[in-house]
Design a protein around this nucleic acid. Structure first.
Lengths: 183, 183
DNA sequence: GTCTATACGTGGATAGAC
DNA sequence: GTCTATCCACGTATAGAC
């Protein structure tokens, strides 16, 4: 049932997905959804919050040498997106674009769970952490949007290895390279 | 009146923006909107299609030397987004995330009007054009999403010059640099 | 041309029977 | 716990008076 919700939110966005349709795909009564989750917001949160924990993949990334961290991060992102968690994250991204509260959710998730920990694992001046982290995020978000949301070819059909080879160096530069930093 | 529509679409997305609200902000009758534009889709197209012509800024970019093209592209993008066209593009982006037909619109706009012409102005093997173009798009889209949609700090508050300095080199590498290319 | 009134559908949410 | 029935708000779109 959460699976149906995730799929619907991922496919049609928060507004487009109706509780009725979700209930129909899950072969249950619409009233049941309310009974279990209360409001639509809560259902959404339950649907996206579950698989949003990257704690299993991050250690692997942090175990790579610092000068290969860029490629490792890109590979992790692709692995998550090409795995079973895609509907949940896609749903989160889709609604983050149209709802501020959801954008805040994604923002803080990115910051606390990903960016801080990736850049935090690398030795650099404190004042550079946030900027480098945001730059990394910009390239990763762009890659994800282009490949999975906008589906712009040939990026959409490229293999993970090819993508890692192409955008890994960019992330690496943002992490440890020579960057003209704001501020 | 188109201005009100643009603002509403940009702020609340295609679904969230109601013709009633648009008409209210524009101080006209909702029925008038239908009378002029017919359906909501047509109104949307009219609102976003107008300022979507970058023909004025592109020549300036193409006039820069090839090894400074990356920075020039980034600067152009920022200039457009920080200018009066922002609501229109923001509206297009917002709805492109949730509606396939709108995504297609944005995709083809990017391809035909921007990417093809920027990479087309640089001497490179034909089979590299699409890939390099898509990579450029991925970084630009990411920058825009991070800064204007997600509003992740400190990128959201950085000055254009700072951004050009930081992400310009990335775009430059995608355009003319040494990249491990898919395919 | 401009506005009033309204049809028509949809979707979230609730009450209450079983 | 599960489902039927229904309420209510909102949004698109149209018909028709002025």
């Amino acid at each position: 049932m959460l699976a149906a919700a995730r799929a619907a939110f991922a496919e049609r966005g928060f507004d487009g997905a109706s509780i009725r349709a979700i209930a129909a795909t899950a072969d249950v009564d619409p009233a049941l959804v309310h009974h279990y989750f209360g409001t639509k917001d809560k259902l959404f949160l339950a649907a996206v919050a579950a698989p949003a924990d990257p704690d299993e993949l991050l250690p692997e990334v942090l175990a790579t040498p610092a000068d290969a961290r860029g490629a490792a991060v890109v590979r992790m992102v692709l692995r998550v997106w090409d795995g079973p968690a895609r509907p949940a994250i896609l749903a989160l991204v889709r609604s983050a674009v149209n709802h501020e509260w959801s954008a805040k959710l994604l923002r803080e998730f990115l910051l606390a769970k990903i960016i801080r920990r990736v850049v935090g694992s690398i030795d650099m001046p404190v004042e550079e952490r946030d900027v480098r982290g945001a730059l990394v995020a910009s390239q990763l978000i762009g890659m994800v949007m282009t490949r999975y949301v906008l589906q712009l070819e040939p990026l959409a059909s490229a293999s993970p290895d090819e993508l890692v080879a192409a955008v890994g160096p960019t992330v690496q530069r943002y992490l440890t390279g020579d960057v003209d930093l704001p501020g």
